[in-house]
Design a binder for these strands. Structure first.
Lengths: 343, 343
DNA sequence: CTGAAAGCGCTTACAG
DNA sequence: CTGAAAGCGCTTACAG
């Protein structure tokens, strides 16, 4: 059976328009239809017009799977995140999406730590053109393996061969924040709240904390207080803090969630935050502006980080083969009242 | 040239394993490989083992595009959202993703109002198996058109032919909230803050507000105050409220953002929220717990709504052809102090 | 239970 | 600028 006949039979049965039905209606070959619609090559004005008209009349939409199979491109990036808790990942996704849309890239949202039926990160290579990993817990070797297969951009972490990465400056800002407590507010018994061993970024904040202490000839009043970053964790942290023999006069928290919960917990126990004890956070979540006292914290340019990641990934997918670079965006220390500053 | 020869040549040049290389290594046909790997048909233990071994050794991952093209299924749903501002969409996505993962469905995140190069909603039919629309502004006819092509589930809105929808109860809760202000706190000059004409859900909240007023034989002290749901909008709302000849004694806000900003604005002008004037919100965002006074508001089961949407869409994609139904999940009124209740 | 082969609907050298 | 045709890498009747 000649091909054309096969095709007409198919077209007749199939509900939707295909490139064949468009070609037939326009009186051109499917190659011309493809060229007109994808803009991949120059086509005559007449052909262009006929194809456009036929496509419109048939409400033709190219089948994505066929397109990808033939072109070997997915026009899609995966963004791997840890969770959507809190404003961090939302902001990141917004920044990412805005830029990706400019490049007509679709966004496949992958929530890590939720392994699908025998699926691994590496499987994404048969699904998307590139991957952004914005999750802290993904094992290095798993990422490295993926990066050998397709372009990978890291957000919020760094140090994996062949990957570009986008991070916000941490150590210096954490030093600045801590120094503010020491120099400006005369705090001497400082304690870090959070687990430096758990995540890259927390480790960096802790480093900055220690640097400021060292510069001032101080030592931490206690080892880092490790609690879950939840309200219950805040309760627990409150207990821990109040149970310390030599009560700290400043708590530098790994993020706003802990700082906020701690603020509530201390307030409930009659401890005046900003006066009896200084508290700082990290991230500048919405609630940081609404608590009393307002939370002193550090603000990462999360949305810009997302946009930058999209930019970098797009470039890599486009074929740029430069070795992975690290892009550091500036963090801003936001002084409110929980450090002791006046409202 | 015989097919097998063509194939071996390809396999030789191609970097990645294909179903052909796996078949060759396992000593079976590609059909058997497909059957073993997809689990679509029973295969002998021997064949199964050989295929699994070969696939493992070659680190074979089926090409998604080829799979979709041949099977006519994408194993992917699109979730169309308006923005990622605030916790609403994040929660929704989390709930959605959790359930979708159980069904091994991928999630394509589409931010509406960001039309890609000549792309419309209807184009999604050539990209995914089904669509969840969780955006208020998408025109009804555009959605209806899409729903004629592929399964569509609505979240937060309803009333489109052939679509299932998931909403949270609004009118009754809004009535309850308003009645609380009237009956419990003796408020008489109530004003709604927000634009009922802008969105379905806000309209429903306004309906509940009016019902409570009518039940009490009252009228709104003023028409709805329409301001942007931002902090600037809160400033503006503050001005509007204070400028009213007969100052309201209660403000029922369309959402927490406005209520929060308004609380800050009023406080800044020396008005005691909860005493001089009652303020309520809607959504129960994180900051609602942290402001002083704590914000009285209503909490939607957003995560559950997302999960339910995933469930419904999966069922529809699976072929269930029942007429679109409406699923209403319960909303909870959360009493804090901004209504006048004691902390 | 298995294989040969057609078909899914595009893109893209290749030749003209 | 255009067309014929091969190829992308799978799934799935069909026959055995």
């Amino acid at each position: 059976m000649p091909r054309s006949q096969i095709r007409s039979r198919r077209t007749a049965t199939s509900g939707r328009a295909t490139i064949y039905s468009v070609a037939e209606r326009a009186g051109v070959s499917i190659a011309t239809v493809s060229r007109v619609l994808s803009g991949a090559a120059v086509t005559s004005p007449e052909a262009t017009e006929k194809v456009l008209k036929a496509a419109r009349e048939l409400a033709y939409v190219p089948q994505n799977s066929a397109k990808s199979l033939a072109s070997r491109r997915y026009q899609t990036h995966a963004v791997v995140i840890g969770s959507l808790e809190g404003p961090y990942y939302s902001e990141l996704l917004m920044g990412y999406e805005e830029v990706a849309a400019r490049y007509d890239q679709e966004l496949l949202l992958v929530v890590a730590d939720r392994p699908r039926r025998n699926r691994t990160l590496a499987d994404l290579r048969a699904r998307v053109d590139g991957v952004v990993i914005a999750q802290m817990d993904t094992p290095v070797d798993e990422i490295a393996a993926l990066a050998r297969l397709i372009p990978v951009v890291l957000v919020g972490r760094t140090g994996i061969d062949g990957c570009d990465s986008v991070v916000s400056e941490s150590v210096r800002s954490a030093t600045e924040l801590t120094r503010h407590l020491i120099d400006r507010h005369g705090r001497r018994r400082l304690v870090f709240v959070g687990d430096p061993a758990q995540a890259f970024d927390v480790a960096a904040r802790h480093d900055g904390f220690r640097t400021a202490l060292a510069d001032a000839g101080l030592e931490a009043a206690h080892e880092p207080l490790v609690v879950p970053y939840t309200e219950r964790g805040g309760e627990r942290a409150t207990d821990l803090v109040l149970a310390l023999a030599d009560r700290p006069d400043a708590l530098v928290c790994a993020n706003d969630e802990v700082a906020l919960a701690l603020t509530l917990g201390l307030r409930g126990r009659g401890v005046r935050v900003g006066i009896d004890i200084a508290v700082t956070g990290w991230d500048d979540v919405t609630a940081a502006r609404y608590v009393s006292p307002g939370l002193t914290t550090a603000s990462q340019p999360v949305r810009e980080m997302g946009g930058r990641a999209a930019e970098l990934l797009h470039r890599r997918v486009g074929g740029q083969q430069d070795p992975g670079g690290q892009h550091v965006l500036p963090t801003e220390v936001v002084i409110r009242q929980s450090c002791g500053c006046a409202g």
